[in-house]
Amino acid sequence: MNIVVLVKQVPDTATERKLNPADSTVDRASSDGVINELCEYAIEEALLLKEKHGGEVTILSAGPDQATDSIRKALSMGADKAVHLNDEALHGSDSLQTAYALAKALGTIEFDLVILGSESTDARTGVVAAALAEYLGLPQLTLANKVDIDGSSVRVQRQTDDGYDVVEATLPAVVSVVEKINEPRYPSFKLIMAAKKKPVTKLGAADAAIDTALVGVANATTAVVDFAEAPPRAAGTVVKDEGNGGVQIADFLAAKKFV
């Protein structure tokens, strides 16, 4: 069972996030980069599957030099090796272009299963996994809160609006996970030290046969027309409950015509 986990570095949600005025791409310099939270769940699931079925876990990340921090973190959780797709031509790629580039990079790796997070905290588009399955022509088992492998078949519980669907397919396949699936482990000191020696293969666009006319902000399939900070919410009223807090809310709701 060889598993590739797609890991994205994103600006820390706890810090203020900005867009670059020049090209409207996410300003990665203005806030600390961290591993996308949901990617940690994807890594954890890959490690659990490896513990059960054997094989290797490879991290694949597309991003600038700083992404190495997240790659190291992923390796220190227990992944075996990593591939870092890093090319100036990819800067500012939108989610479909990213899916295309990742599909191409996956062409250089042997795998039975690709696992992604279902969403990233910065883009929040939630389309990469589906678009990737489309590009690869592989079964899409996304939004999984449970994954089981049995021989050459994979079965997941796919989270739906009102419950879940049971979905089955044959490997190789693309799986994306939601945070219900597991509890990501903390890297041990020993693993952190070991991670420093694990192999990270650098990949340029040409190495992955990526057509550079199809990626990057200049060729993006979507363009930001303009953006502005949203006007801050007007400061609200905060009262301490002196025994009539419920009545006070009712008064507020009545004034707003909700009751």
């Binding site: 919410r233 301490k240 409950d241 009545v247 009751v259």
Partner: peptide, 24 residues
């Protein structure tokens, strides 16, 4: 980010609010 907030125990405030709404 709340337009109106009550600092207090929800188990006291909420039943009172519900009763008040039903009354009105």
């Amino acid at each position: 980010i709340a337009d109106f907030a009550v600092v207090g125990d929800l188990h006291k405030v909420t039943p009172q609010l519900t009763e008040e709404i039903n009354k009105r």
